[in-house]
Simulated assay, not measured.
Amino acid sequence: MTRVTLALVRPLVLAVDWIPLAVAAVVSLGLSVVAVVASDPSPESRVMNVTISIRVSAILLGAAAGFALVDRATRTVAATPVPRWLRQWTRTLLAVVAAGVGWFLVLIPIWVTFADGTALPLAALVLEAAVCVLTALMCASFAARRGSDRSAGVIGAAVFLLLGAGTLFLTGSLWPWPWIDDPVWPDVHRWWLAALPVPLVLLAIGNRDILRG
């Protein structure tokens, strides 16, 4: 199975539509630079601005990563010995790696700016980004079951963005986007950690083979 997966990597790298991810990475890097440049010298302002840029970047890269799960050759490769679930999980892994690289590029200007030792809870922000990217891929995996063109990627991204927008209406202890100095920060991120397996399980369902009767 490992040999088959490795053999799939090169053709899938060539087949994946990387344009949305590339655009999202460039936009995210731009937001990061703007957040660093536009902040006043106070640590509080810098932390707030870069936290916003990091979170927005995770959402943009997640939405764009979903396009990697759209297999435009679904109908022509359905009869090949390689099952759909293996192709889709290979695409998922490629998308996660690409989104991760894009997200860490966003951190470069932030690391340079925070070289003076200003604290930034990177582990918690990585957790948020992981949940965002996996949730976006989960939405795309179900959209890809229904369509095999770019519109499936658009639908997956739209559903994910609607879910994200819905979190903005949550209040109190349900608010998932606290500021770093908020006393509920540790409790909220325990919920983020608890939520991490959910998109993984649903992604496994979305990446299953499609039974045709």
Score class of each variant (00 low, 15 high):
V56P: 00
W179Y: 13
P43S: 03
L134S: 12
A99V: 09
F114H: 15
V184L: 06
A35G: 13
D17G: 00
L21D: 09
A140T: 08
T5N: 13
I52L: 07
V16I: 05
T113S: 13
I180D: 08
A124H: 03
G30H: 07
A7V: 08
W89L: 05
V184K: 14
V96M: 12
V97L: 09
W185F: 14
L21Y: 06
V133P: 15
C132L: 13
A63P: 00
V50E: 06
V188K: 12
V184G: 15
V50G: 02
R84E: 00
L193F: 10
W185C: 10
R87I: 09
D209H: 04
H189D: 07
R72C: 11
G206M: 02
A119G: 01
A78Q: 13
V154N: 03
I59F: 01
V77R: 06
W111Q: 14
L105D: 02
F67W: 06
A194F: 09
G117Y: 14
A123L: 03
D187E: 15
L122N: 04
F169R: 15
L125C: 00
P186V: 01
T92E: 12
D149E: 13
A58W: 04
L60T: 03
V34C: 13
N207D: 08
A124V: 01
V97W: 05
F114R: 07
N207T: 14
S148N: 15
V106N: 07
T167A: 14
T92Q: 09
R190W: 10
I210F: 04
L12A: 03
F169A: 13
G66V: 03
L193K: 07
V36K: 12
S39N: 03
R10A: 06
L105Y: 05
L193W: 08
L120T: 10
V50A: 06
L196V: 03
P109M: 10
L137G: 07
A157H: 02
C139T: 08
A25N: 11
I54V: 06
G172D: 14
I155C: 05
V96K: 08
G164E: 03
L127D: 01
G153F: 09
V101R: 14
N207G: 12
L31H: 05
S148R: 13
T5G: 12
W192N: 06
T74D: 08
A157P: 00
L94Y: 09
T90H: 03
T76H: 02
L122I: 02
S141L: 04
L127Q: 01
I210Y: 12
D40K: 07
W89M: 14
L12I: 01
F142T: 01
L60S: 10
T2A: 04
F67G: 01
P178W: 00
L12S: 10
C139P: 13
S141P: 15
A140G: 08
A98L: 07
G164P: 00
V188L: 12
L203V: 03
I110C: 10
G62I: 03
M48N: 13
